[in-house]
Nucleic acid binder design. Structure first.
Lengths: 137, 137
DNA sequence: AGAAATTTGTCCGTATGTATC
DNA sequence: AGATACATACGGACAAATTTC
């Protein structure tokens, strides 16, 4: 019943299993994963635990979820290509708004902002750098 | 990582921060606070701690939370229908690589780069600024 | 066009085990 | 020992988007 999480948590185990199904092709890209209620039945876990498992995959960009629809294995008909050999590095930090950003956000210079930097790269070179700025929420 | 509560308990600190954002206008009245899971991520606290923090604000009548919906900064008003319509402005320009970007891309300082800037905003405020940097091609 | 069913999103309350101060 | 915090897990309920009838 409640929560013996020796060794590996249940949601990790479930995430591993689902990841395997996706990467092995058992759940082809673009198709829907089983619904949350189906997963709760299959793994005999609570919905919260199942959702936690799916959240792991979402974090890994292995799936995308749409409200009222379901969870797809890899983005539905988007970008078309995922470069198998390209990887991303993500970094997040706090910075103080320079005049430019301060004006955009309508805050004072020096206000704290969150910057997330995503670097898309192959082993050889950097493809793209994306910097996202937000107010700390 | 676990539990240094020098002086002030963790949930107090989180409550203080959220209170400041509300009173400072960073979270305007009528808008939803970040979800519990978002707060756990941001403050790297457990759900229990986050809920404890929100409970403090609820006690102070600074927020009201609706089951299945979320937690609002100050009571949700009937007429205050908010435009969920967020819009984006896109801008693209050439710039010269500063030392930081030059190092990332492995080019010399001053090399031309393409910057695309996407600003996500409502009528009221800027939500997010995304800057994408690429080598021109 | 409208009602019902599905599915995901969020919150609630509770519980257990672990770890640190 | 006690207080605080963390991680995990359960079950229930309401909300919202989508699909189906």
């Amino acid at each position: 019943m409640p929560t013996p999480h020796y060794g590996q948590p249940r949601y990790r185990t479930i995430a591993d299993e689902l990841r395997h199904r996706i990467t092995s092709g058992a759940i082809p890209p673009g198709t829907l994963l089983p619904t949350e209620s189906a997963l709760t039945a299959e793994f005999r876990a609570s919905r919260g635990t199942v959702r936690q498992a799916v959240a792991v995959l979402r974090e890994e960009r292995l799936v995308t979820t749409e409200h009222g629809r379901g969870t797809y294995a890899s983005p539905p008909q988007l970008g078309s290509e995922q470069n198998a050999s390209s990887e991303t590095q993500t970094r997040q930090r706090l910075l103080t708004a320079d005049p430019d950003l301060a004006a955009l956000f309508g805050v004072e210079v020096g206000t704290a902002l969150v910057e997330q930097e995503i670097i898309t790269r192959t082993a050889r070179s950097v493809h793209m750098v994306v910097r996202t700025y937000r107010l700390p929420r």
